[in-house]
């Protein structure tokens, strides 16, 4: 599990003593935990208007890091759902998981993507499902939509929908601590 620290630049020392069988392992390094600046935010928002798909994609990836600027960023992410490039639409849905509260206010839009016709790609549907499962707060309406989508999903979507549904269920009712080890390891597979 990650350790939370104030942002900044640090020297780091990690170690674990697994003697006598596996020995002692050490690591020295440096890490840079710097909040992306407002200037970068402005640049990335401008790049979203680029005619070059790769520029728009690169900008989108960085927009994950501005949850405190959701009022500015989230409408731009919503606009990306209308992009002609399916990869951009898919990525926008992924980035929105950094804005779970604002996304929850648009639940119907994402349920619409999840249950969309064949013009919506499998990846978009899967990302919409994962985003729905990450909403804060969770809602029964979203849970019902996810369960129904899973019941009706074809093989290409079923595995990923199952992951989203399990994610939703865990958030509604966390697993028994006795089962936690096994559950965690399975999700890492």
């Amino acid at each position: 599990m990650p350790v939370a620290v104030p942002t900044g630049r640090y020297d780091l020392e990690a170690s674990i003593d697994l003697k006598p069988v596996l020995g002692r392992i050490e690591h020295l390094g440096a890490i840079d935990l710097v909040i992306p600046s407002k200037k970068i935010l402005e640049e990335r928002l401008a790049q979203l208007e680029s005619g070059i798909v790769n520029t728009r994609r690169a900008a989108l990836v960085d927009l994950r890091h501005f949850p405190e600027d959701g009022e500015t960023v989230f409408p731009k992410l919503m606009a990306c759902l209308e992009d002609e490039d399916a990869g951009i639409r898919m990525l926008a849905l992924s980035v929105m998981t950094a804005y779970p509260t604002r996304a929850a206010e648009q639940a119907d839009r994402f349920i619409g993507i999840l249950t969309g016709d064949e013009s919506v790609s499998t990846s978009e549907k899967a990302n919409a499902a994962y985003l729905l499962s990450r909403f804060a707060p969770v809602s029964e309406k979203v849970g019902a939509a996810l369960e129904q989508a899973l019941a009706e999903a074809d093989d290409s979507l079923k595995t990923r929908l199952k992951y989203a549904v399990e994610n939703y269920r865990r958030r509604v009712a966390p697993p028994d601590p006795e089962e936690r080890d096994d559950e965690a390891s399975k999700s890492e597979e």
């Binding site: 350790v3 942002t7 780091l12 840079d32 909040i35 405190e68």
Partner: peptide
């Protein structure tokens, strides 16, 4: 062995998150 540490870092809001994995 040999083992190495994988260090993961990211920022979330105003805080940094560090993970270590052997």
């Amino acid at each position: 062995p040999p083992f190495t540490f994988k260090i993961g870092t990211r920022t979330e809001g105003r805080q940094g998150l560090v993970s270590v994995g052997l």
